[in-house]
């Protein structure tokens, strides 16, 4: 155990205190452009995701409780913990996919818990998800799968399949495919892809709508090590290039430290670790995986 690294929020986080709400309306402007530092006199990083005493129960089983953190814009946070510790569940709570049992989640400076469906959808349209299993739709073309990533912004039958889609959306989807290096497979049926390719399609689908926050749930768990590395490199390249805030779970200590700026550790239903990746060693994390 590394008691030294427990609950040690960085200095900037404390600085980003109550004045937060004021920054909400103009998030697309200066803060976004230069990783939130450049022109501003006082570099106050915006908080994109905030958990306040979040708790989750399934029936009588308490999964976690009293989980609190604030994640800065443009940073990557690794969420680590043993199998069944509740990492995926916490991610789902952060996206409002399942209700929390207590506490509050703020996503992009709006309350995600108890938001009305329409408001929640609008919020999610600014978010992307890549999951452990790629979760792309096998019976459809790669291009259609990527187009589905735009459904949050433009719903309706024209975005169900690339055949019907507006030219602009198709072009956008092709760009996303180009970014993950799969433009040449646009019309391939999604179930004719390798695992690594499928996960790239899932990444393209997640980034096609230019999200401000990306969630990834063990994005390379179902891949062989080499394909996994490639997918992680690609994912974080794309996220960093656009200054996207990332939260990813991983069972791989090395990945957590390498790709995360900050590491949160779940164990025994509590957040047992919260530290910057650079301050941690592999040995600090091992205890969490027992």
């Amino acid at each position: 155990m590394s008691d030294a690294s427990l609950k040690r929020p960085g200095p900037q986080q404390r600085a980003a205190g109550p004045g937060q709400a004021a920054h909400a309306p103009d998030r697309a402007q200066p803060a976004r452009a230069g990783h939130g530092t450049g022109a501003q006199a006082v570099p106050v990083p915006a908080i994109d995701i905030e958990a306040r005493q979040v708790a989750k129960r399934f029936g009588d089983t308490q999964i976690f409780s009293d989980v609190s953190f604030r994640l800065e814009r443009g940073r990557a946070t690794a969420l680590v913990g043993a199998n069944g510790a509740g990492k995926s569940t916490l991610l789902r709570c952060l996206m409002g996919l399942i209700p929390v049992s207590g506490g509050e989640v703020r996503l992009l400076q709006q309350t995600a818990t108890q938001a009305r469906p329409a408001a929640l959808r609008a919020l999610r349209a600014r978010v992307g998800l890549v999951s452990q299993k790629h979760n792309i739709v096998p019976r459809m073309s790669v291009l259609s799968n990527v187009l589905h990533g735009l459904l949050g912004q433009q719903g309706g039958p024209r975005h169900w399949s690339h055949v019907l889609a507006p030219a602009q959306s198709r072009a956008q989807a092709m760009q996303a495919l180009e970014k993950v290096g799969l433009a040449h497979l646009a019309l391939r049926r999604a179930d004719r892809l390798s695992g690594g390719q499928s996960q790239r399609v899932a990444i393209a689908r997640a980034i096609v709508s230019r999200p401000e926050v990306l969630f990834a749930d063990e994005p390379c768990a179902s891949l062989d090590p080499q394909a996994g590395e490639d997918v992680m490199d690609l994912f974080f390249d794309l996220a960093r290039r656009d200054g996207v805030t990332v939260v990813f779970t991983s069972h791989n200590i090395d990945h957590a430290l390498r790709y995360g700026d900050r590491v949160l550790g779940l164990a025994d239903g509590r957040m047992r670790l919260d530290a910057t990746a650079s301050s941690l060693h592999e040995s600090d994390l091992r205890g969490l995986y027992d």
Binding site: A122, V127, G128, P138, R139, M140, H148, L151, W160
Partner: peptide, 27 residues
């Protein structure tokens, strides 16, 4: 439920999710 959840996470409406994930899977 995976594909449906992934689309829901990007803010898609229920009907869109059903049309793009559930129905193709049940085909």
């Amino acid at each position: 439920k995976g594909p449906a959840e992934s689309l829901t996470a990007t803010g898609a409406r229920r009907l869109d999710v059903v049309a793009c994930a559930t129905i193709p899977a049940a085909m």
